Simulated scan of single mutants.
Amino acid sequence: MKQYELFYFPSCPFCQFVLNELPAIDKQVSLKNIMDNFDYRNELMAGGGKTQVPCLKIINDDKTQWLYESQDIVDFLKAE
């Protein structure tokens, strides 16, 4: 079963776009505010290679994928 984690910060308009779309998407997505928790920022940098938000971390068994770009994130979650 896939797990989803969204790295974001509240003042980012692209993050707000994704956050506003989440209620209409029937997926459980954990939220990780990189401004409130520096460990989340470090995790994003170590895994995704950059601190750009929004970023969706997709965990599928032993494979992890990092997806950037707000519209790509929304489209991916809707298609899953």
Score class of each variant (00 low, 15 high):
Met1Pro: 14
Met1His: 15
Met1Arg: 11
Lys2Gln: 14
Gln3Leu: 13
Gln3Thr: 13
Leu6Gln: 07
Phe7Lys: 03
Phe7Asp: 01
Tyr8Val: 09
Tyr8Asn: 04
Tyr8Cys: 12
Phe9Ala: 07
Pro10Glu: 14
Pro10Gly: 13
Pro10Leu: 12
Phe14Trp: 13
Phe14Leu: 10
Phe14His: 15
Cys15Arg: 00
Phe17Gly: 01
Phe17Tyr: 07
Val18Glu: 00
Val18Asn: 01
Leu19Ser: 06
Asn20His: 11
Leu22Trp: 01
Leu22Met: 04
Pro23Leu: 11
Pro23Ile: 10
Pro23Glu: 13
Pro23Thr: 11
Leu31His: 07
Leu31Ala: 05
Lys32Phe: 09
Asn33Met: 08
Asn33Thr: 03
Asn33Ser: 05
Met35Phe: 15
Asp36Gly: 13
Asp36Tyr: 06
Phe38Met: 14
Asp39His: 03
Asp39Cys: 01
Tyr40Arg: 04
Asn42Tyr: 05
Met45Cys: 10
Met45Thr: 08
Ala46Leu: 13
Gly48Val: 07
Gly49Val: 10
Lys50Cys: 06
Gln52Met: 13
Val53Ala: 04
Val53Gln: 00
Val53Gly: 03
Cys55Asn: 03
Leu56Cys: 01
Ile59Trp: 02
Ile59Met: 05
Asp61Arg: 00
Asp61Leu: 02
Asp61Cys: 02
Asp62Lys: 08
Asp62Leu: 07
Lys63Val: 10
Thr64Val: 14
Thr64Ile: 14
Gln65Asn: 11
Gln65Phe: 05
Leu67Glu: 05
Leu67Ala: 07
Leu67Ser: 09
Leu67Met: 05
Tyr68Cys: 03
Tyr68Trp: 03
Glu69Ser: 06
Asp72Glu: 10
Asp72Met: 11
Ile73Met: 06
Asp75Met: 15
Phe76Trp: 04
Leu77Gly: 10
Ala79Tyr: 11
Ala79Lys: 14
Glu80Gln: 15
